[in-house]
Design a protein around this nucleic acid. Structure first.
Lengths: 210, 210
DNA sequence: GAACTAAACTAAACTGTTTCGTTTAGTAGT
DNA sequence: ACTACTAAACGAAACAGTTTAGTTTAGTTC
């Protein structure tokens, strides 16, 4: 008698969020339709509004959840830190690129984060905090701990490395303009490694592409 | 006027597009409201629909026009090609950064281009064709024409240079996360120059910041 | 006479609410 | 353990009120 209190089932919440994901990622916040979310999730409209007070709360909950899922970006899929620098960096970069190629949802998520960053700055900041910053930190720490890499400013080197790759992904995959500014993936990575590591240390890698 | 044949006045068209710019940039395609555009432009709704068949055509016309305005990105504001490499590159980068800082519309435009790139890929491609590619080409040609800069792959060096700066802008200005991944602007530029030019050639610039 | 304004209008779509009947799960009496 | 009771979550669907893109109409300006 005291507490027959059941709560809104977390499974339903997840079902709703999964349905909302398709619709929000495809159409953005303003373009998404609650009725479509309802249909995609296979729940009733009333249930959606029992779990979330309004569209905006549903949207932010979804994006926050995605920005916290490091698995989505395979941040755990990191090459061994004991690897030699050229191999480590190349595998790291290839991991990012393969990740993007294999899962188009990542591109759509990037579009949302950037596209809605003026209206939902906290979502953008959560993304940077959970995804971008850890990547930059890891790379910076790696460069610092391998002093045989003669890099004067590891933090900037990490930014240059990641920034170059992300810019490449934005041009090629997000903006779908790989044919307008063509660039071979392996050429970019090999030349980038030379820039970051200095010419000498990466030459041995040139014929063994992983 | 002089000739009896009056057409839809280009001034009105421009007035409509200017009104549409505020609304579309602020709210995106789906979030923009025709009535707001009408009010912002100070024209009647009927006039809008005499100039443009529908919302989508108005939107694409606007974004295409913006993507063709190289002035907006100050691509004409390029340092002299006769400048020594370190000075040229630094001024070029500072030009990009100042441009972004001084005109928030550029950031909003970037958000739109990326945010709508799945639904309007041709707009994204026009942006790359008119803005990104000329920048990359100019920088690549500059690096090629200054062989004293010992860069094995000028095309990749140009991408690394611009990619690093754009990534910096995205983190700091677009995603508004400069406090989460802090980085001093001048430190980034100086260290980036060292990476691209090699340590020796940029040292003279370190104490003369323009 | 053509482009325009203002405003009413249409038809549809939208978010969010409500109604009502069903299901689910925890509780208590026997 | 079996059943009955209870309360809340749920689905389906209608509903309310607002907002939307786009049209039309009637009058104005050049």
């Amino acid at each position: 008698m005291k507490s027959g209190e059941r709560e809104l089932s977390p499974e339903k919440t997840a079902t709703i969020l999964n349905g909302a994901m398709q619709e929000f990622l495809e159409h953005g916040y303003a373009g998404a339709r609650i009725d479509k979310i309802v249909a995609a999730a296979g729940v009733s409209k009333a249930t959606v509004y029992r779990h979330f007070p309004d569209k905006e709360t549903l949207f932010t909950a979804l994006i926050q959840r995605m920005a916290n899922k490091k698995e989505l970006f395979r941040l755990q899929n990191i090459p061994s830190l004991e690897e030699d620098p050229a191999t480590f960096l190349k595998r790291y970069a290839l991991g990012m690129l393969d990740n993007v190629e294999s899962d188009p949802q990542i591109l759509t998520f990037l579009r949302i984060i950037i596209g809605e960053s003026a209206r939902f700055p906290e979502l953008a900041r959560a993304f940077v905090r959970n995804i971008e910053k850890p990547s930059l930190d890891l790379l910076t720490q790696y460069l610092i701990k391998h002093p045989q890499i003669e890099v004067a400013d590891p933090e900037v080197a990490a930014r240059a490395f990641i920034g170059t790759i992300i810019h490449f992904v934005i041009l090629r995959n997000v903006l779908q303009s790989g044919d307008i500014v063509p660039m071979d993936r392996d050429r970019l990575l090999n030349s980038l490694l030379k820039l970051v590591l200095g010419k000498s240390q990466s030459e041995e890698l040139l014929s063994s592409p992983n």
